[in-house]
Design a protein around this nucleic acid. Structure first.
Length: 773
RNA sequence: GCCCGGGUGGCGAAACCGGUAGACGCAAGGGACUUAAAAUCCCUUGGGGGCAACCCCAUGCGGGUUCGAAUCCCGCCCCGGGCACCA
């Protein structure tokens, strides 16, 4: 340990204190738990950052501090806390920025990571740096590719055509965020088109029901309701029926999905998605030119605009007819882009009387509208079902269809399969080889990693070829099966695949020969507490759950839900607006840390508002937490310098014990703002009562430690302790003392406060308990 | 349109299993110390009335339940976030 003696200075110098303890923590390895034999393992996880060139911003700092406070608190409760950190450094953000500044990402990223590392150390996080990881490290992405292969072998990865945004000017694929109102961000006059490319997908839809069901399993998942709700929404389960319509003059039939089979008698036309496989066959010669023109026009839109609702309906008649199985009537079959191939059957029965979209379509094209429900939701004009309540009719009509082989109950999900292909450079190459003779061949596991080849010119260009294909030495490879010349897959995988399993890697980061060690994994996982932003409520958190489920089913891990507890932190806003570069209200923590110290800044961020709600950043407030630390510092100074430490009055005693309970409960509930307020209240009582007794100060320092760790270490040492404050235990409180001995009784008349009386609490009565308002 | 949050002093916010509205902090005003300033310490601080004891008003709006509502119920308005032509 260091040689610096404890400071006895009258004034608190955060820069000196923080530098001293940061080096002591590093030298003493105090944040490195025994990963093999932990007494009470507690895996405290925070979402690893994308190392941007701007550095850690206040939003990151808020999130990390909140998680760190919790981890430190758990440590003080006696848990062996593992708090790892790493970098999510692959992906389009890094690549776009590298293109913008003209520096290769392989040069840029290590620089950014070094800066993040510096900032993360400076903020005083309890990170176990031994286990640091970066998704761009071949030793990491080797296993990202391995996971791809496991899914491939299990039949959970497949290749199909999918639409991407295509800029005809750049002649390259654009990410959704590069499409601005249907135009290319680099060519504001060029409309982005959709183009179908063969891409790799993961079958997350196979897991829709389990992903949904586990959300209600409180044993496996204790999650913020906002997050669980967002996932339910995203998975989007709907119950309904598949109904099969015969086609006039054809042998095959047309399937649709509907949630309202009770309105079948009101189905007056059908609509197919432009991509529906039956469109060509159904189209009459007279209509062929119109239909083909319409399909072409649809394809020319970008992927983003196609999905924007509320546009005026467009469509075209195919010339074909279907037969409504309920009425026996012939109804026309149309094509329209408001029906999406990706959902349900890619075709609908249109019931314009009872569906707004169908109605606006029917009105535009003069199609019949037949009401089949009356005011009190009973069926009319529906043959033998007329008079039935709609709810009963859903089941009855479905059963009736089923008897005739014309339909059946069906559950649909809105969830799509996960497209993991990215036609980009800065990511892990998808470990697949295409051979003329053997077809699609996975790279053998022992040949991993497929290292991302160095490419000076890494930006997408107008050749229409993926960047990786330009490196021919890499691109052409002997087929692993037959040895003949074959080609590598040139797409890289989605960043969400990198971040989908990083939590599994941390405890095993030093093992080269396996992705996650079975013993380490059993010891530390699933993650005990995970804190992160709700912007990842659906993508990251859903993908991570899905991958864990697959790995569980394949026997690689013993749990299927990776995060026992998840809490979403709030957002830091400034001047009433979310911080963003474009608004110019981004706050960089460094300047504040330089001026006030990391401890003051941490405490300030945590006092802004409830952690799960966020808060409003205003410079003016920072002096409050600093004054608290200055006063505690001074009080510690008085305690060690003087014999007369004041009397522990009844008021002090009660407040002391109340505070121990309240701060513990508030931190557990992530109500850091009120925990800090309670500490300040205790300080105020001690000052009023002129008390600076050592036991009370010891407790106060321990309770302050999660928020201001360096400060607490220094005070702890000044108070005469020789070990780290984090070797201490959270102070116990006496429940009898938590109930105030004196109480003010409020006299109310008609619910209004009329008078207040102070009464002594009787100890006997106390024991008897009970007592009404 | 649907699903989550949220609306309380000059400001950030507390209180929310119904029972003292505004804890804690910031800012502001007054005072002490100082040649002065900063820092620090003490006092005041939702609005209105009263010499005072006290009284009245006040938690987005309108109703309701209750001895009593910021809190519960019904109907709205506004702000933030997510999803959205999902059949």
């Amino acid at each position: 340990m260091g040689q610096t003696p404890p400071s006895t200075d009258a004034t608190y110098d955060p820069q000196a204190v923080e530098a001293k303890w940061q080096s002591r923590w590093a030298e003493g390895h105090v944040n490195e738990p025994d990963l093999d034999q932990p007494a009470r393992p507690f895996y405290n996880l925070m979402m690893f950052p994308y190392p941007s060139a701007e550095g850690l911003h206040v939003g990151n700092m808020f999130a990390f501090t909140g998680s760190d406070v919790y981890g430190r608190f758990k440590r003080l409760q006696g848990y062996t806390v593992f708090e790892p950190i790493g970098f999510d450094a692959f992906g389009i953000h890094s690549e776009n920025y590298a293109i913008q500044v003209g520096v290769h990402p392989s040069e840029l990223i290590p620089r950014n990571i070094a800066n993040f590392r510096r900032q993360l150390r400076r903020m005083g996080g309890m990170f176990d740096w031994r286990q640091e990881l970066s998704t761009t490290d071949p030793a990491y992405y080797k296993w990202t590719q391995w996971i791809f292969l496991q899914l491939y072998k299990a039949g959970k990865a497949y290749r199909k055509h999918g639409n991407v945004n295509w800029c005809p000017e750049c002649k390259t694929v654009l990410a959704n965020e590069q499409v601005i109102d249907g135009y290319c961000e680099r060519h504001p006059t060029v409309r982005v088109q959709q183009r179908a490319l063969k891409q790799w997908y993961f079958r997350i839809t196979d897991y829709a029901e389990r992903l949904l069901h586990n959300l209600d399993d409180a044993e496996a998942m204790d999650w913020s309701e906002t997050t669980a709700g967002a996932q339910r929404n995203w998975i989007g389960r709907s119950e309904g029926a598949e109904i099969v319509f015969p086609l006039v003059g054809r042998e095959d039939r047309l399937s649709v999905f509907t949630t309202r089979p009770d309105t079948l008698f009101g189905a007056t036309f059908m609509v197919l998605a432009p991509e529906h496989p039956l469109v060509g066959a159904l189209t009459a010669e007279a209509q062929r030119a119109d239909v083909e023109a319409y399909i072409r026009a649809t394809a020319e839109q970008d992927v983003v605009s196609r999905r924007v609702g509320d546009r005026e309906k467009t469509g075209v008649f195919t010339g074909g007819f279907a037969i409504n199985p309920a009425t026996g009537q012939q109804i026309p079959v149309w094509v329209a882009d408001y029906v999406l191939m990706e959902y349900g059957a890619g075709a609908i029965m249109a019931v314009p009387a009872h569906d707004e979209r169908d109605l606006s379509f029917a009105e535009k094209f003069g199609l019949p509208v037949v009401r089949v429900l009356d005011e009190d939701e009973r069926l009319i004009e529906s043959g033998r079902f007329s008079g039935e309540p709609a709810e009963a009719a859903i089941a009855n009509i479905t059963a009736w269809l089923e008897e005739r082989g014309a339909g059946q109950r069906q559950v649909q999900y809105r969830l799509y399969d996960w497209c993991i292909s990215r036609q980009r450079y800065w990511g892990p190459p998808i470990p697949i080889i295409y051979c003329e003779d053997c077809g699609t061949v996975p790279v053998p596991e022992e040949a991993l990693p497929v290292v991302l080849p160095p490419l000076d010119e890494f930006r997408p260009d107008d050749t229409g070829v993926s960047p990786l294909a330009r490196n021919e030495e890499w691109y052409f490879v002997p087929c692993p099966r037959c040895g003949r010349r074959a080609r590598r897959e040139t797409d890289v995988s989605d960043t969400f695949l990198d971040s989908g399993w990083y939590y599994l890697r941390y405890p095993s980061a030093e093992f080269d020969e396996r992705p996650f060690d079975p013993v380490r994994t059993r010891t530390w996982l699933p993650v005990t507490a995970y804190i992160g932003g709700n912007e990842h409520a659906v993508l990251h958190l859903l993908y991570a759950r899905f991958l864990a489920m697959v790995l569980h089913d394949l026997g690689h891990i013993t749990f299927e839900e990776p995060f026992l507890r998840f809490r979403a932190h709030g957002l830091i806003v400034k001047d009433g607006a979310k911080m963003s570069k474009s608004r110019g209200n981004v706050v960089i923590p460094d300047q504040y840390i330089a001026q006030w110290g990391a401890d003051t800044f941490r405490m300030y961020l945590m006092s802004l508002g409830p952690f799960q709600e966020g808060g409003d950043f205003r410079d003016a407030g920072i002096s409050g937490p600093r004054r608290y630390l200055d006063k505690v510092w001074a009080m510690v100074g008085r305690c060690i310098a003087e014999d007369a430490v004041g009397e522990i009055t009844k008021a002090v005693m009660v407040k002391w014990h109340q505070t121990k309970q309240k701060v513990a409960e508030d931190i557990e509930a992530l109500k850091y703002n009120t925990a800090i307020a309670a500490l300040m209240e205790l300080l105020n009582v001690l000052r009023e009562e002129q008390c600076c007794e050592q036991h009370i100060l010891d407790d106060m320092v321990v309770m302050t430690a999660p928020f201001a760790p360096h400060f607490a270490e220094e005070c702890w040492e000044r108070l005469g302790h020789t070990s780290s404050v984090f070797a201490a235990r959270w102070p116990e409180w006496d429940p009898a003392l938590v109930v105030a001995a004196r109480a003010e009784v409020v006299i109310q008349v008609n619910g209004r406060t009329r008078s207040r009386v102070e009464v002594e609490r009787d100890a006997e009565e106390e024991r008897g308990g009970g007592g009404g308002g």
